[in-house]
Design a protein around this nucleic acid. Structure first.
Lengths: 210, 210
DNA sequence: GGAATGAATATTTTTTGAAAAATTCATTTT
DNA sequence: AAAATGAATTTTTCAAAAAATATTCATTCC
């Protein structure tokens, strides 16, 4: 039912391939000119098709913006997943890494490309965009929950509702995931102030009382 | 040096009394019409003075907006202070209460009066307003730190940097203090979802390992 | 002389119509 | 018949003028 592009780099049938082409071209244009300054005509030119034809693949410009943001989310998730693949480290280190990597990735993207702030604002103003955002948040909650389960199994953490702990970790670090809030967060040598301290205090709370 | 109004309900000399009159009238007008739609002429009319005379008491309209917000901050702090006055409860209960009361107060104010969102946005866009906000944040950090010190003394908490723990608690609950973020936070029977769970997990982290 | 006024000036917001862009759709292409 | 086009239509943006508002200040009041 859902017509969203698959994540694989090499899509199969024509329509999916064209959707991906549109997103990749749009991503480049949005980075250069910003979402609002990029016109449908620009995207059409970049993909060598007519403006009208874009509407065969996306409902409207907002839909393209959302798809681009979703692609960023998938990339960020892939990056966090990669961090989790690395061998060493117990659940605590992995949770720390997961959140630090995710926030770090976001901060670097934003610093590297201020145009993304506009896209982030747009996604928050759009109800459908908020759904995409929520899905990304849930991905993070689940990823943390998995590590909590692992920690409970090894005895590093005391028994608890892992699903809920994932939600708690994300909620407690929410200000660090919000582009609009990120502006107000101080940094020291590249690390956002207090983020790791929040995580450490909550991890301490997870450990068995004895 | 600082010419800000005292908190007492009955101010002493003329100038302070007039400043307070202006703020009280402005607060009502802002609630009815919003900050941007309220004109200096409106405020002048409400206080039975000429527009020009307002400038004898406040540098400009922004200054009035900031003073109104600061008044809200002082009221919120007073409310939290009152909560702390109540006899029962150890440090953990008091920290929970402090944060819940503060966030609850903010949420009720916002629900009761959506115009405040505009004022909050304005304060965040103004560098001087951000200073007021920072002071309010520091008040909360210090209030929590005091309870942490008490907890360390009673042995309920393990020894730690109380000052820093105050900062951590505020940082971890920041999304619940931000009017712009508050819109996105779900509520269940009047309580913001997960707020108390964040606090509880961090409190668990403060307790002696045994 | 400090406090207050209100007309004069500076700034910001609103309006308005033209220009640009988004979206649709009758037609053409493959 | 699905895919694509590009001209036609609708919607949004932009810039200039007008109106409203903020701020100043020479003057008046107590």
């Amino acid at each position: 039912m859902n017509a969203t592009a698959k994540q694989s780099a090499e899509p199969q049938d024509g329509a999916e391939r064209i959707r991906l082409e549109i997103i990749e071209a749009s991503m480049v244009l949005f980075q250069h000119y910003g979402f609002s300054k990029t016109t449908m005509a620009d995207i059409a030119r970049a993909t060598s098709m007519s403006p009208g034809n874009l509407y065969r693949y996306y409902k409207n410009k907002q839909d393209i913006g959302r798809a681009v943001v979703e692609r960023y989310f998938r990339m960020s998730e892939a990056q966090m997943e990669t961090g989790l693949m690395l061998p060493g480290g117990g659940p605590a280190e992995r949770i720390r890494g997961l959140i630090s990597d995710g926030v770090g990735h976001l901060m670097r993207e934003m610093a590297h490309n201020p145009r993304l702030v506009e896209l982030a604002d747009f996604i928050c103003s759009d109800p459908e965009g908020m759904i995409s955002l929520q899905q990304h948040v849930e991905w993070k909650e689940k990823a943390i929950a998995k590590e909590v389960v692992r920690g409970i199994q090894t005895g590093e953490f005391k028994p608890c509702d892992a699903e809920q702990v994932g939600q708690i970790f994300v909620a407690a670090t929410r200000a660090y995931w919000m582009p609009m809030a990120l502006i107000h967060i101080r940094q020291e040598d590249g690390k956002p102030v207090l983020l790791e301290d929040i995580i450490d205090l909550m991890l301490a709370g997870l450990r068995p009382s004895k």
